[in-house]
Design a protein around this nucleic acid. Structure first.
Length: 298
DNA sequence: ACCATTTGACCATG
DNA sequence: CATGGTCAAATGGT
């Protein structure tokens, strides 16, 4: 392997994913070479069962890497929200939101599998009438530092294993205004393409949902352009989808993480690691062929 | 000791 | 008055 260099302390977080990614790429190349051997062998003879076994082994290695990548990212995505709270400063007195209880206009609803990229502090939880699941209330951890008015509400959907996340207000805690906030965004921007492969639960892309200052959100901003203070909702799929993924016949109980990643849309591809159109669709940035509404106003 | 989360109470709205 | 959103003291983790 090529990764025997000393590790910088700052790389400890990102490196496991990078290592696994590169390991997977190496396995993919091995798999390609073996496929080439199989084809060459099959052209002249009946083929070697040992060779087929080797190809199967390579495929299993690939699957292991896929699963490892997905799990790595799942852990990272889960830790991120925890870190969000953990890294925030102390809470002080806060103001009641001006729009509290009062007529919110529209709301943008999106389907996504990623977390956002902000630091949130939970400030409340409420049982909602006629709803099976409680609603959780979060506000931006930088509300105190930057007066950031952004809040979000999370509630598990009653109809599917997703979470409805409704955002209120705009983030004013921009990168550069605060070291911690900048560090978060910087780290997300350093995510490799390979990480994106498995990281539709990743936080980086979703930041644009309610961060009109970032580059990608022009479309979203325009979609909810009536008023930037209007709330928007994101449906986030969680682990249960992954668990519903059927086992792969003939292989150990290792499951491709496609369900976890894209609601069953795609498995990793050796040649094209990033499906930007699918990513965009998953993010609700593009209209989908199936006509499913990915954005709506209420 | 500090800080984030929990949770009951309080407040605003319809 | 019912409901949802927020506050803030209590609690627990590090």
């Amino acid at each position: 392997m090529a990764h025997t260099m000393a590790l910088a302390a700052g790389e400890l977080n990102a490196l496991p994913t990078q290592l696994v990614t590169e390991g997977r790429e190496s396995a993919a190349r091995l798999h390609d070479l073996l496929i080439g051997c199989v084809q060459a062998t099959a052209a002249g003879s009946t083929g070697s069962s040992t060779l087929y076994d080797t190809v199967a082994l390579a495929e299993q290695i690939l699957l292991c890497f896929d699963c490892a990548l997905a799990k790595l990212h799942a852990v990272a995505a889960g830790a991120e929200e925890d870190d969000a709270a953990a890294r925030s400063g102390g809470e002080r007195k806060t103001e009641r939101r001006a729009s509290n209880g009062g007529g919110n206009g529209g709301r943008v609803q999106r389907k996504a599998t990623m977390d956002d990229n902000f630091l949130w502090r939970k400030y409340g939880q409420k049982e909602i009438k006629n709803s099976k699941y409680p609603r959780f209330y979060y506000r931006c951890s930088y509300k105190d530092d930057h007066g950031c008015p952004a809040t979000k509400q999370i509630q598990q959907s009653e109809t599917d294993p997703s979470f409805d996340i409704t955002y209120f207000g705009e983030h004013t805690c921009r990168p550069g205004n605060d070291d911690a906030a900048a560090a978060i965004v910087d780290s997300s921007e350093e995510l490799s393409a390979a990480q994106l492969v498995i990281s539709f639960a990743n936080s980086s892309g979703d930041a644009s949902v309610c961060w009109p200052c970032s580059g990608d959100d022009a479309r979203i901003k325009s979609d909810s352009s009536q008023d930037s203070s209007l709330p928007c909702t994101v449906n986030v799929y969680d682990e249960p989808i992954m668990e519903s993924t059927p086992p792969v016949p003939g292989l150990p109980d290792l499951k491709p993480m496609d369900g976890f990643l894209l609601d069953g849309e795609s498995l990793f591809d050796m040649d094209e690691l990033i499906y930007f159109h699918e990513l965009s669709a998953a993010l609700g940035l593009l209209d989908r062929d199936d006509g499913a509404p990915v954005q709506s106003y209420r």
